[in-house]
Simulated assay, not measured.
Amino acid sequence: MQHTLIRSMLLCLALTSAPIAMAEGTVARALFASEVLDREPIDELGDVIKVEYGEIQRVYFFTDLRDMDGSQIAHVWKLNGQVEVEIPFDIGGDRWRVWSSKRLMPGFDGKWSVDVVKNGEVLESRSFDYVDEW
């Protein structure tokens, strides 16, 4: 009888205890690059990217995520504060690298930014100016 009472008390304690908070995870790296090869950016673009006429430029946004296994994040690309596209990613490990890209051409000049969003919260944000010097 005493064992049954102890088991019942432990079960009640387990059911009424507050849930254990899970780590939110971190964005270890976030950067713009001209290409991603073998899951790594080949360079890091600066704060200003100039329009190249006669070409479509592709800009990659790379993130190295830690301790987010099983969750989902999104890269939210914005031009002058207006959302252009939201790209979701399912995170499948404790260290997960993801990237998205945007094709830029003349006429897309302005302030570009990408927010790393998880559960509606912006974890990280980066931006660059796409400038037309003509």
Rank of each mutant, 00 (worst) to 15 (best):
Q2K: 15
Q2D: 14
H3P: 08
L5P: 01
I6C: 05
I6F: 04
M9T: 08
M9G: 07
L10Y: 08
L10F: 08
L11P: 02
L11K: 14
L11N: 14
C12G: 05
L13F: 13
A14L: 12
L15H: 01
T16F: 13
S17M: 14
A18E: 15
P19F: 09
P19E: 01
P19C: 10
P19D: 02
I20E: 02
A21S: 06
A23H: 05
A28V: 07
L31W: 00
L31S: 11
F32V: 11
F32G: 06
A33Q: 05
A33C: 14
S34T: 15
S34D: 15
E35G: 01
E35F: 03
V36W: 09
V36M: 06
D38W: 07
R39V: 05
P41K: 03
P41T: 06
D43K: 10
L45N: 03
L45W: 01
L45I: 02
L45P: 03
G46I: 06
I49C: 09
K50G: 06
K50C: 00
V51D: 09
V51T: 12
E52H: 10
Y53N: 13
G54T: 14
E55M: 12
R58Y: 05
V59M: 11
Y60R: 00
F61L: 14
F62M: 08
F62P: 06
D64K: 12
L65K: 01
L65T: 10
L65F: 05
D67V: 02
M68Y: 05
G70H: 11
G70V: 15
G70Q: 13
S71N: 13
I73N: 10
I73F: 13
I73H: 12
V76K: 12
V76N: 08
K78A: 06
K78G: 09
L79S: 00
N80K: 07
Q82Y: 11
V83A: 13
V83T: 15
E84D: 01
V85K: 14
V85D: 11
I87V: 08
P88D: 02
P88I: 12
F89L: 00
F89C: 10
F89W: 08
D90P: 06
D90T: 12
D90S: 12
I91L: 05
G92E: 09
R95E: 14
W96Q: 06
W96T: 11
R97F: 07
V98W: 03
V98R: 07
S100F: 01
S100Q: 04
S100V: 04
S101N: 13
K102D: 03
L104V: 04
L104G: 00
L104C: 00
M105N: 07
M105V: 10
P106V: 09
P106D: 00
P106K: 02
G107A: 00
G107Y: 05
F108G: 01
F108V: 01
G110A: 07
K111N: 01
K111S: 05
V114M: 02
V114R: 03
V114P: 03
D115I: 00
D115S: 14
V116I: 14
V117Y: 03
K118E: 13
K118R: 15
K118L: 08
N119Q: 15
N119P: 10
E121S: 12
V122A: 09
V122P: 02
L123F: 10
E124C: 07
E124I: 03
R126D: 01
S127M: 05
S127L: 10
F128I: 03
Y130A: 01
V131F: 08
W134I: 00
W134R: 11
